[in-house]
């Protein structure tokens, strides 16, 4: 797609479902690259930046948010039909997000506990990833996504190559940076060993355990890691909370949570 000439800019749309808009902001935060981006892409839909609308088809659609309300079910299917390339961005779109914690709970009871008029709120019992509903061509993980990865994805669309986004374990980034392992040296609870990289080991760099916001990395041995966390003296409730954060509904975290749920009753 790269060499079609400058006259034809790829049409880009950004769409949102149940989300906080933080991932859209990551695009706006690419401040010194924004001019170049709009020179090379025609951004025709972008709720966080403009109220302008433009019908499809689109060359690239970035989808933020989880499928969480009844109307989302049809909207995402319609959007897919208009998208040549559909890219999900962020923990909500790729894993269901923090709102997917309700998937283990009584949805109606939650709604009644929070809203004064629960009958006014139309929501699905489960918050799910976009890929549960339509085919997804690429995912950008994180809560929020990483600006560098977003830029690389845009670049790869222009150049016509596979994005050079390494999907590896957070620990690898930690070690390259020379961060002392906080699990081994301080006994911190850290999701690094089962979490996908991309954040450049942001939390461990500041001495905090990884929250797992980039979600389970490919091949994550979540079962062994949950056992390891418990071996170091953490009760099942605490391990449950670690896995249930931003991406808990993505496998294999989901299976671990189901098992832990049985353990903690």
């Amino acid at each position: 797609m790269a060499s079609t000439g400058k006259a034809v800019r790829p049409r880009v749309a950004v769409a949102k479902f149940a989300s906080c808009d933080g991932c859209q902001l990551t695009l706006l935060d690419l401040e010194d690259k924004l001019l170049e981006i709009v020179t090379r892409f025609d951004i025709v839909e972008f709720p966080e930046a403009t109220s302008r609308h433009s019908p499809g088809p689109y060359d690239v659609v970035f989808v933020e948010g989880s499928i969480s309300a009844p109307e989302h079910l049809d909207q995402i299917k319609a959007l897919r039909k208009q998208a040549r390339v559909l890219v999900t961005i962020g923990a909500c779109a790729t894993a269901g997000g923090i709102q997917a914690m309700r998937n283990w709970a009584d949805h109606d009871a939650y709604r009644a506990a929070i809203y004064e008029h629960p009958e006014w709120v139309e929501s699905l019992a489960m918050a799910t990833a976009v890929s549960d509903h339509v085919k997804v061509d690429a995912e950008l993980r994180g809560c929020p996504i990483d600006g560098g990865q977003l830029l690389e994805l845009l670049t790869s669309v222009l150049v016509g190559r596979r994005p050079q986004i390494r999907e590896e374990v957070v620990c690898r980034e930690c070690k390259r940076k020379g961060i002392v392992c906080i699990v081994v040296a301080s006994g911190e609870a850290c999701m690094g060993p089962v979490t996908s990289s991309g954040c450049n080991a942001l939390c461990p760099t500041y001495g905090r355990g990884c929250y797992g916001c980039f979600g389970p990395r490919i091949g994550a041995n979540a079962k062994s890691w949950s056992a390891g966390l418990m071996r170091s003296g953490r009760p099942p409730e605490e391990v449950w909370r670690l896995f249930a954060g931003f991406t808990g509904y993505a496998e294999p975290f989901r299976s671990v949570l189901t098992e832990l749920g049985k353990a903690k009753g």
Binding site: V169, C171, V184, P193, A220, N221, S224, W225
Partner: peptide, 13 residues
């Protein structure tokens, strides 16, 4: 291998 989490800390250090 069931226990190993493949974090690669062994190879990095």
């Amino acid at each position: 291998a069931e226990r190993c989490v493949e974090c690669g800390n062994c190879t990095m250090s």
